[in-house]
Amino acid sequence: MSSNPESSSRVDPSIVPLMRSLALELVIYGPIVTIYFFLVLHRTNNWLTNIFNASSTEYAIVAVLLIGGQGVMLEMFTSWLLRRIGLRH
């Protein structure tokens, strides 16, 4: 048997504030990302298709940058949302 002393000092917080935070986050997050989808992603469709047909190198770079950029942005947004609504996980 082994144990991790570093972890032992942390006490698991109550599940109730977590569920409340996540539910509220989903309620706010859902409409905002829907707007984002129709305003931004939907409109990039033609632009991305043109790059895909024109140059595979350019398309590959744009794809990785978009995936990375959106990942960082969405993570920052969800964290900001939690701080903004004053609930902590």
């Binding site: 992603l41 991305l48 978009l66 995936i67």
Partner: peptide
């Protein structure tokens, strides 16, 4: 990439 970006909205 558009399919991946759309899936990532839910995945985030």
């Amino acid at each position: 990439v558009l399919i991946a970006l759309t899936m990532n909205i839910g995945a985030a």
